[in-house]
Amino acid sequence: MTNRNRQEHSDVPVSKTRGNNSGVNRNINHFLQSLGDTLIDFTALEVNTIVVDHISGHKFIAWEAYRDIYPISPGYLEQQGIHESLRDRYLELRTSLEREYRGLLNDPTSELHDPTVYEEDNSSFANDFERTPTRLPNPLDLKSPETIVAIQRLLGNCRFLRGLRKLAELKAALDDRNQTVLRLVSQQPDQVEMIQRRITTDTICAQTVIQLDGDVINRYDQSLFHHPQKEVILQIHREGVIASERQWRGLLEFIIGLIKATLHKS
């Protein structure tokens, strides 16, 4: 009798552990799946070097970044007091966000794939900002539970998050630039034209894309070639490319090693 009792008692934790274990395994498998998906998506290493006024201590919080980029529109930028010369770049961020999302909706391998939204021309949104309705869930309308669920799903998508992170980084740099411009304009109201000219020649960016097949593509901002520190920037970018390749390889080896160790007994 006592024995049977003991048996029954010990059964409870056993089944509980089993339940936990399958949950853990599901978590691990889901996690590995998303790692694997990203590795499959990987086609090129892209290194960007940007010269900025200030390095912002910007902290990436997905929800906040989404809430801040989503409402960007010509009217909103005006209302927020963003300087005219920078508005196009803000709108570009918003367009990229939309494009990122539509890419996911149209991609059959994505968990956000929606077969009812098939668009041949992905760029239509960019052409007509005001009139094309957005497909992104509205983070400012938190009354409807469907929207909240949609946002949670969206922000749970690794690919979208990575894109969002990059856009948030660019937005932080733009916000900073906006502050500088507004300050300059208020200090020297008669030199608006000069300030505007400086802005267009002052955002330097160099980009190198190394594709898996070995092709290397370099893109430079035109203004770079007239920049007084052209050589320094180019050298820092070149070294950044070499370093990035090694940095990325380190990260990749860590992740692949982990996947291998988790899946195979090797």
Binding site: T38, D41, F42, A44, L45, E46, V47, N48, T49, I50, V51, V52, D53, H54, I55, S56, G57, C158, R159, R162, R165, K166, E169, A173, D202, Q229, V232, I233, I236, H237, G240, S244, Q247, W248, L251
Partner: peptide, 23 residues
């Protein structure tokens, strides 16, 4: 702060450098 790098897990890497530092 003089430099900031964001290493995206998908191979997107962004290095930012502060302007004054270049002088």
């Amino acid at each position: 702060a003089l430099m900031r790098s964001v290493i995206g897990m998908d191979g997107d890497i962004m290095h930012q450098i502060q302007r004054n530092c270049l002088e």
